[in-house]
């Protein structure tokens, strides 16, 4: 096989079909010009060495870029990736968590389920990351190759060229007043956990006993009928928390208005909790008698202690949360 022909093939196979023949002929005549009369194979190798790597030569002829995403779109691509991946990951983790808590089987132990949730949660986060990464990258790769405009200037998030006016749309937030994404995700996670636990309390919250093979659920602490009768109110509270988290997410800065909203949310939560917990049938009678047997205390006293401690602790943490909101807003 003639080395020259192989070299030309190596270049032209990387080119669009319509250009192959012409560039092939041109290369052949050029290479022959480079060679002395009566050339040897060594001469051919020297000449081809001067022409260099066929892939580089071909990329010179090609107008297509030799990169997936160039400087024009790279910044906006990375920004979008950083924005979408955490949101998608947290949502997928919450979905897995909710699914397992809802499907929680009485025979299973909390520890086992916890391990499964963690494992599958991590797996689903990886899965979501790969999906987002793949589709976003593909979108930008196509964009890079279909963009007909000549200028190569990097684009901003609005897909236009940068102008000083863009600075006006940048939310500059001092560090002390910033609402971190982590805070928003943590509160969403917390909402989804307590919400699912609440509606499945009859097989999640109660007395566990160590029976050799792990923890075994013996009896529920609360009366699910009472809890379910509060259902609509609880759903309103859940909705309020989710809406508030979304508002935080959009605003990403503590303001007085947000601090007031936060106080309203905490107050509603505290009132609902108080009404729920003082309901005479809230505690499961079986649970109260079990506790009174264990602690050698009358049932009524135990109930009062639990109610008192819960309300005080909840109120203290609520007040601290409200104050912290106002303090951040005033910095």
């Amino acid at each position: 096989m003639d080395l020259i022909d192989v070299y030309i093939y190596e270049v032209t196979r990387r080119l669009p079909i319509k250009n192959r023949e012409d560039i092939g002929l041109e290369l052949k005549s050029t290479i022959e010009d480079m060679l002395p009369d009566g050339y040897t194979e060594e001469d051919v190798k020297v000449a081809l060495g001067e022409l260099g790597n066929p892939a580089i030569l071909a990329s010179g002829y090609n107008e297509r870029p030799m990169h997936l995403i160039g400087p024009k779109y790279f910044d906006i691509y990375v920004s979008l990736l950083k924005m979408i991946v955490p949101i998608a990951a947290v949502i997928s983790f919450i979905v897995v968590l909710t699914k397992y808590i809802v499907e929680f089987d009485k025979g299973d132990t909390v520890l086992n389920v916890g391990i499964v949730v963690l494992g599958e949660g991590i797996w689903s986060v990886i899965h979501v990351f790969m999906q987002v990464f793949f589709w976003l990258t593909l979108t930008f790769v196509i964009l890079e190759r279909t963009d007909q405009s000549k200028d190569k200037l990097p684009r901003t998030m609005s897909f236009n060229k940068w102008t000083p006016e863009d600075l006006e749309n940048i939310p500059y937030v001092p560090k002390e007043r910033m609402i971190t994404k982590g805070y928003v995700f943590a509160s969403l996670l917390w909402t989804s956990i307590w919400g699912t636990v609440y509606f499945n309390a009859d097989h999640l919250v109660g007395v566990y006993k160590n029976s050799g093979g792990g923890l075994e659920f013996i009896m529920p602490a609360f009366n699910q009928h009472v809890m379910d009768s509060f259902g609509p109110v609880i759903i309103v509270v859940l909705g309020l928390e989710i809406v508030f988290a979304l508002i935080l997410f959009i605003n990403n800065e503590w303001t007085k208005k947000l601090a007031i909203l936060n106080t309203v949310r905490e107050t509603v939560g505290l009132i609902v909790l108080a009404f729920l917990i003082v309901n005479p049938n809230f505690f499961h009678p079986e649970f109260l008698s079990y506790m009174s047997g264990n602690l050698e205390m009358p049932e009524g006293q135990i109930r009062n202690y639990v109610i008192g401690a819960t309300l005080v602790l909840y109120a203290v943490s609520s007040i601290m949360n409200c104050i912290s909101g106002f303090r951040k807003a005033n910095r």
């Binding site: 010009d33 480079m34 260099g52 580089i56 010179g60």
Partner: peptide
């Protein structure tokens, strides 16, 4: 000029150009 004569005349003036740059150019 044809491709290779262009390379030679450039080289004579002391201008070095990779051939893999010149032909696509």
């Amino acid at each position: 000029q044809y491709g290779y004569s262009l390379v030679q005349s450039l080289e004579k003036s002391g201008i070095v150009i990779e051939q893999s740059t010149l032909y696509p150019l």
